[in-house]
Simulated scan of single mutants.
Amino acid sequence: MGRKTKVALTVGAVGAASVAAWAASKVVAKPIPREDKEALNFDKPVVLAYHGGHLEAPENTLAAFSKAAELGVHGFAVDIRLTKDEEIIVFHDEFADRTTDFSGKITDYTLSELKKADAGYRFEDEAGHYPYRGLGEKIVTLRELLEQFPHMLIAINLKDSPDTYEGSLMPSKLWGLLNELDAEDRVAVTGSYDEQTDRFNLYAQNRVATGAGDGEVKKAYAAFTSKLGHLYNPRADLFRVSEKLGVFPLGTENFIHFLKRLNVRVYFEDVTEQDSLIKLLSIGASGFITDRPAMVMKIIQEHIGE
């Protein structure tokens, strides 16, 4: 027997063994779907106003949240930060001058100091005017948002890195507030850092819906595109993603259904084109996080119904 024949036989044997191992794993592996979370149980696609819909009113203000609620949205997607005195506020950027007349980091100020800021100061309408300046719009705490809108789903994004002081405190602070307000069944806690969400879940013990971080999304997509998707067990109840992860398409029917079979909802962000919204609706998107809630609500009503 020649060398080439021996090599061919060896390669063939390895290939056959790999196929056999894969087939065996298909029989043995039993992916475990996520348990139902009441917060995410909707019959139709969900619309969450991003920061309250910040293209239509000053972001993260009661004006924005109230305006979005009047449209009939299902809830809001917000970022949270800690103040100097460790109160949780609804705010996107780490710097106060992002939307107010204050300057410096959020953590430089106590809640009472931040409440003096004009939270509508930087909002500019299409005509170039600042219609909310001086109207008394204030920074909103997460407590106030939960109490003001008890019927709404709130997707809470943990912005701070787990390596920061604020990030180290936030999971326990957030759990304490949700537990105090009995709000576990009307929020979803998300964030880019899987480690941060895991820390929160040490307190919540799977009683709160959680979202996938960047690492979990990549892990799920890698499993989906390989032949080992049957080995993937999700660590989150919700994926909030864009249509693409770099060059890789996430807004496909097969990927959405791959996650749905595991009882994982997929909410899409940053979708601004009407055709894209309609396509995602048709292939099973569970929801949308948008700064244009009026437009998205109109499209859903036209294609899904009330």
Rank of each mutant, 00 (worst) to 15 (best):
A57I: 01
E56V: 00
S25G: 06
L48R: 10
V46G: 13
S25N: 07
E35S: 15
A29G: 09
E59R: 00
E38H: 09
V46T: 14
H51R: 14
V28N: 04
P45G: 13
L40S: 00
K37M: 10
Y50F: 11
P31G: 01
P45W: 12
H51F: 14
Y50V: 03
Y50T: 02
A49T: 00
V28D: 09
E38V: 15
V47W: 04
P33H: 12
R34Y: 06
S25F: 12
L55I: 04
G52S: 07
S25A: 12
A29R: 08
V47K: 10
L55W: 04
P45E: 08
P33W: 05
H54E: 14
V28M: 04
L48Q: 05
A49D: 01
P45S: 11
H54N: 11
K26R: 14
N60D: 12
F42N: 02
E35H: 09
H54P: 01
P58N: 01
E59I: 00
L40R: 01
R34L: 05
A57C: 05
P45L: 13
A29S: 10
L55C: 06
R34C: 11
R34N: 15
Y50S: 06
K37G: 03
P31N: 02
F42K: 02
P45C: 11
P45R: 14
K37S: 08
K37Q: 15
V28I: 10
V46K: 13
I32R: 14
I32D: 11
G53I: 05
A57V: 01
R34Q: 14
P45Y: 08
D36I: 07
K44F: 05
S25H: 11
K44I: 08
L55S: 03
D43E: 15
V28K: 10
E38S: 06
A39Q: 07
N60F: 15
E56R: 00
V47Q: 03
V28H: 08
A57E: 03
A29I: 06
K37E: 11
Y50E: 05
R34M: 15
H51P: 01
K30I: 02
A49F: 00
K26V: 06
D43N: 07
S25M: 12
E35Y: 08
K30D: 01
H54K: 10
V27I: 15
Y50N: 12
E38L: 11
E35C: 10
G52E: 10
H54F: 14
V46F: 13
H54M: 14
